[in-house]
Design a protein around this nucleic acid. Structure first.
Lengths: 232, 232
DNA sequence: CGAACAATTGAATAAGGTCAACGGCTGTGG
DNA sequence: CCACAGCCGTTGACCTTATTCAATTGTTCG
């Protein structure tokens, strides 16, 4: 572990049971979790949480910030698979495989709580509940992946960007911090920086979208939805 | 259930435990499964197994043939999410959601065994093992989806087709039946019929690929791999 | 303040899509 | 048994979309 900064000490216990995700399992699980060694780790923008191909020893819960999961082609192009938001879990390849099949890095900054896969055994009888939880999350993620496959495979650049923005700014008519750079948006949508930039410029001109500082606001959500489904 | 033909009777019990996938759970599970109502259903090429948005009541095990899972855009374009092969399970949206989030149809022909989600409860104490099994399958599928996202988002048409063909013809230098039509390959790779056709023609000319009847053979697997990773 | 980096914009190019015509196979009905 | 319709695949010419290349501006950070 090189560029990893522990938030307080080397192994600060992580209050996993505070999180809604794990809270659904009830108190018995929370109690059980207190037995499981877990620690809190903080990452800066340039840190790598884990790399594809590396031994998959931990399962992660994102406490604060955003994390991008991505894969890299043989020719060096990155494709962002998913953007993880606070409260979500990621990196559960270790439950099945020896190695991670993708890489994980923060967007800007991230605080995670991680549990060693080996230590999951300590949960004893509660373990099936964890697996059920992960199964549920996994199916949800699979549905999300299906949707993204549809976007990458069957939609034009403007449709892709529009539906990404709609998903990102889930609050209507409010400023939403855009954590991703143009490059990261491009890598997420399978496009180039320039294409993203041009679409932004066009939509700003048309009064569809506004941007100030690092934040954006969708001015005409209805029209943006039309663009996303190409009902123009 | 309209265009559904039951293989023998209305509810022929399905020997689920014969399948490698479930066999991993051991004999106790096989015994338990005999209690669970499941039936075998046969579909022709034009039948629909289930449609996106429909109530997700069954979980399926493909016994014979191939099944395509796909989503449709608002404008009517289909994107094939995954091609299911014999022995694999699909349609487990019902474990989490009320409705299927994608549609399922056979390629040519399919025989499935299905279990009502409600009846999975009958497995009682053995249920955690089923959930673990599904979790494992689900993670595997997620990894597969990640790979496909990389292909659709970051690769050119020739790279996509080449890596699809390499995956499809896993046996080296042997004739492999190509179950998919040009249209279906196009819908899988996010391309058009014409593009697929042109690449096939080019590779046949170059002696990379051969096609007779409904079968194909990769003549130069090494070179095909180079195309897939654009090491040209 | 200047160096590095991020975003914008324009012009040229390439990749793939669209449109259209044609060939070939299959299955059906006279 | 043949003729023909219908479907699938092929091929060519053209067009659209998005990428690439390049120059410029804006932004952030030491």
């Amino acid at each position: 572990m090189m560029n990893v900064q522990y938030s307080v000490g080397q192994s600060k216990p992580c209050p996993v049971h505070d999180f809604a995700l794990f809270a659904t399992l009830g108190d018995t699980f929370s109690d059980a979790l207190k037995v499981v060694p877990s620690d809190s780790v903080e990452y800066a923008a340039t840190d790598t949480i884990y790399s594809a191909g590396v031994s998959a020893q931990h399962i992660y819960l994102l406490r604060d910030g955003y994390v991008k999961l991505f894969k890299t082609t043989a020719s060096g192009k990155d494709q962002i698979i998913r953007v993880v938001k606070a409260g979500e879990i990621f990196g559960f390849d270790g439950l099945v495989d020896i190695r991670y099949n993708h890489s994980a890095m923060p967007l800007k900054h991230a605080t995670v709580c991680r549990i060693a896969v080996d230590n999951l055994d300590m949960l004893g009888a509660r373990r099936p509940e964890v697996e059920r939880l992960i199964m549920v999350r996994c199916i949800k993620e699979l549905q999300h992946a299906d949707e993204r496959l549809l976007e990458l495979g069957a939609k034009r650049s403007d449709e892709r960007l529009a539906s990404f923005l709609l998903g990102w700014c889930n609050a209507a008519n409010r400023w939403t911090p855009l954590i991703l750079s143009r490059l990261e948006i491009a890598q997420l949508l399978g496009l180039t920086i320039e294409t993203i930039s041009r679409l932004f410029a066009q939509w700003k001109r048309e009064g569809l979208l506004e941007e100030k500082q690092q934040a954006i606001q969708i001015l005409d959500r209805h029209k943006m939805k039309q663009v996303a489904d190409s009902n123009v």
